[in-house]
């Protein structure tokens, strides 16, 4: 009876609170209309008539992340990679050996999981390649792709992943390639500056008032939003393999880690 009364009281309070919030306006009046800052982005993210301010992408978030505040994102990316480098250096000296015995879960789970891997790849790639058109982008795609190695580690075995060639070294090189790609895309305007002599800015996407440099907004008639598609592709590569390295290292058992990192005992 007491439990029933408490439950009834909670329900009544919840209903009254939601009525107060929605009808009574207890949270204050809702803001109607668009703020001037939002208006600027909505007007300019995809605006072929105002080329000095546009990012040529209908996706406002990606435009802001990789163009309007591109340097900020670049440094965020660097922070993420420093964290992974920290993880790698913490695990230095630990060899990811390949064992013969791979237990894993049952054959049913393994079969279902392996069917999902190609689907995981294409869905993640779609998120990356449509990052300049629809919500998503390189980091989100990389996070989605990183599901594949962690599932394989759980369902098959860490040794299975290593045997299939996804080693720490491979993942490190692919991650570095992604990172180099991002740096290259950021510096391509400078190459244009050196060769043509016209002004250009680091991480520049479309033409500016005093710079004629521009990444192609369309390739073969398809909208690629200049530099945004390239940042998304390289970020996808870098994040996917950044996470893969961390998963590989974290799946090493504690005993092995301690054997290497524990140091020697001295009398």
């Amino acid at each position: 009876m007491r439990k029933f009364l408490i439950a009834a009281a909670v329900i009544v309070i919840a209903v009254l609170a939601s009525i107060a919030a929605t009808v009574g306006g207890a949270l204050g009046p809702l803001f109607n209309g668009v703020r001037s800052l939002a208006e600027f982005y909505l007007l300019n993210v995809f605006n072929p008539h105002n080329q000095t301010l546009t990012a040529m992408s209908p996706e406002a978030v990606t435009s802001i992340v990789w163009d309007y505040r591109g340097l900020d994102t670049l440094f965020e990316t660097v922070v993420f990679y420093m964290a992974i480098i920290g993880c790698v250096s913490l695990h230095r000296g630990i060899e990811l050996i390949r064992k013969r015995s791979e237990a894993g879960l049952s054959r049913i789970v393994k079969t279902v999981t392996k069917i999902l891997i190609p689907l995981n790849i294409v869905i993640a790639a779609s998120i990356a390649l449509h990052g300049h058109l629809t919500p998503g982008g390189g980091f989100q795609a990389g996070a989605a792709m990183a599901v594949a190695p962690i599932i394989v580690i759980v369902v098959f075995s860490r040794f299975f992943l290593l045997r299939k060639g996804v080693t720490k070294e491979v993942a490190l090189s692919l991650r570095s390639m992604g990172l180099l790609g991002i740096a290259l895309v950021a510096l391509i305007p400078l190459i244009a500056w050196v060769t043509t002599g016209s002004a250009a800015y680091v991480m520049q996407n479309q033409v500016k008032a005093d710079s004629s440099f521009s990444f192609p907004a369309y390739i073969g008639g398809s909208l690629v939003s200049g530099s945004l598609i390239w940042y998304n592709i390289f970020e996808f590569l870098a994040v996917t393999f950044g996470f893969t390295i961390v998963f590989l290292l974290l799946s090493v058992d504690e005993e092995t880690v301690r054997k290497v990192l524990g140091g020697e005992e001295h009398e």
Partner: peptide, 10 residues
Amino acid sequence: VAFLTYVVFS
């Protein structure tokens, strides 16, 4: 199968 998934997802 991957291509069909890609198109449907996109």
